[in-house]
Computed example of a mutant assay.
Amino acid sequence: MAQKTPVRPTKQPAPKPLFSDPVYDGAADPVIIWNKQRQKWWMFYTNRRATDTTATGVTWVHGTRIGIAESADGGTTWSYRDTANINYRPDRGYTHWAPDVVEANGQYHMFLTYVPGTFTDWQHPRVIVQLRSTDLLNWQYVQTLPLITDKVIDASVHRLPDGTWRLWYNNERDHKSIYYADSPDLQHWTDRGQALNERGEGPKVFRWHEQYWMIIDQWKGMAVYHSPDLLHWAAQPERLLELPGQGRDDQAIGGHCDVVVNNGRAYVFYFTHPGRSKANPAPANSIAAKRSVIQVATLEFKDGKLTCDRDKPTYVQLLKPKDR
């Protein structure tokens, strides 16, 4: 029987950085979900090999497995747990990137970017595969999604008001714009084409303050869009996490985030490359320039816009989700 430990929210602010991967020091692309079996919050993340001194080209971001961190205090502190046991690895040097995870009908579904090898450049196909699990640790392959092209990354899945599902992703062959696909049942998917004619990756879609939001990583901070219907998106002028913070390892732009809306509050979990600050950049291709860490900040809503101050203390108090 799985160990169950009650979540103990803390009154201490989240540390900076929130989490550093102890294996390769390359944590990126976080996604947060409640683990019912362990009664704790889990974080899945891309586990880049930042400290691999033998890596050439961009092989250090390939050949990766998905890391897992765990929080027993409502998301304030995190400890390394394991790598996800994903049974889909048909190619030598396989690469797992940027998962999104949702729960439905008593099972967890992961939508994972899969790259068929370890490559020195970016000129190779990647697909989004769907996996299924009952415990969040062991994952079985379900299908490769029938999307519009063979070079897609960064799934974000959200349940629509009518109970159906929508998945957004980055189409790298169409100027890295955002596309989407629909499913009535998390099994059958139909690609609907372009959702947003903007360059960016790592879309994250969520509902807060009576409207839908999409945040995308534009490599100069994260662009914010809002929508009444998940089809028509309007941009807000200001990007999030563009200006450097003052905290430890937080002086660079924020990238590829997850947003958790919980008990009326919203938290943005993002990653930074600490060695890529404009004020004091590390040498190109150095370990310092490659390493990445996970940070967290509180989202704020005012005058119809989202903002966040990464230098304000962030008191993360994620409560156990209500059963649906």
Rank of each mutant, 00 (worst) to 15 (best):
G163L: 01
R49G: 06
I253H: 12
L18P: 03
L299Y: 15
R248D: 13
Y315S: 04
R310C: 06
K40H: 11
V127M: 05
S286V: 08
H226I: 01
G200L: 01
M222F: 09
W165E: 02
F119N: 13
W139Y: 11
L18V: 00
Q317H: 12
F301A: 12
G247R: 10
Q130A: 08
I66N: 11
V142P: 03
S71A: 08
Y179V: 02
P22Q: 09
N138A: 03
L131T: 14
G275V: 08
Q143A: 15
T64H: 03
K220E: 09
A98Q: 04
A55S: 11
T5R: 12
N263D: 15
L136K: 04
L186W: 11
K302P: 01
P184N: 02
K204R: 15
A50H: 09
E242D: 06
T272W: 00
D25Q: 14
G117I: 07
T5K: 14
L319H: 14
H256R: 14
P13H: 04
W42V: 11
N47Y: 03
Q39P: 00
D182F: 00
L196W: 01
H62W: 00
D121L: 01
T113W: 08
A223V: 07
R48H: 10
W60C: 05
I216N: 04
F111P: 03
T54H: 10
H256N: 15
D258S: 03
T113V: 08
I148Q: 14
P203E: 12
Y114N: 12
A27D: 08
K278Q: 13
Y212I: 06
A297P: 12
P30V: 13
N171C: 08
A104E: 13
T134G: 14
I215D: 00
V102Y: 08
W233T: 10
I128D: 07
G163F: 07
A284Q: 13
L136V: 03
V205R: 07
I216K: 09
W34R: 12
N197M: 15
Q295P: 05
G221P: 01
D182M: 05
T120G: 02
H188R: 14
R310Y: 00
